[in-house]
Design a protein around this nucleic acid. Structure first.
Lengths: 105, 105
DNA sequence: TCCTTTGTTCAAAATTCATTGAACAATTGA
DNA sequence: TCAATTGTTCAATGAATTTTGAACAAAGGA
């Protein structure tokens, strides 16, 4: 099982914005931001869609470079690539997360 | 000819990010930001695509609330809705424009 | 070993998106 | 009035996206 992640220098703005320009994925990212202390598993997003569908959206976020996914046992631990994003596009993620917060308090 | 623009309070984050998550539209917005002194016409984007195609992308940006389009003669003057965006999602547009700048210096 | 848990992959269907050319509309100027 | 300029709308097409269920795979525990 390969879980390819784009390198930091390869992160593309349009691809990242497209990945975040979807309600389900925006909810996933907001949820990750709210629980950055410990990474979350796929199963913790099942209220947002079916198992298959969440797997699809999480793959999109990973391929865009927004999240990192590491396999641990049968689970996948998902976390925001905050430091990488900050280095490539300073301030971008924070402003998007802040904007997302004005919607779901 | 009606040119409907969403109200500031109705601006939706996912819709805005989806509108900006396209290379052509990101170029359009970056170009608008570089020339905010005076609004631009559709014809000034023809290097990014065909006349019909640019009209399509400009409609997307307008419907998302990113741009404002006013008819003047046979032309359309297009400008960023910077103040509205700032009020609804403070800092968002600036951070996206700054990120876009790191790509095309 | 067998079963459960946790996710992925695959194929199919439905939807949406992007692009094009032809036709149209409105304004301006000769 | 006639023609040129500036964009939009329409229909069609191909591509990409989203969603679903069935089948599969890997790890862990009884």
């Amino acid at each position: 099982m390969s879980l390819p992640h784009p390198a930091t220098e390869q992160l593309d703005l349009a691809i990242i914005l497209a990945a975040l320009g979807d309600p389900t994925r925006l909810s996933i990212v907001a949820h990750l931001a709210r629980n950055e202390a410990e990474p979350l598993t796929c199963g913790q997003f099942l209220d947002l869609g079916s198992k298959t569908n969440i797997s699809y959206h999480l793959a999109k976020l990973r391929e865009a470079g927004v999240t990192r996914t590491e396999a641990v046992g049968t689970s996948r631990l998902i976390s925001l690539r905050r430091a990488d994003l900050e280095r490539r596009f300073p301030g971008l993620l924070d402003s998007i997360l802040a904007s997302a917060k004005t919607l779901s308090p």
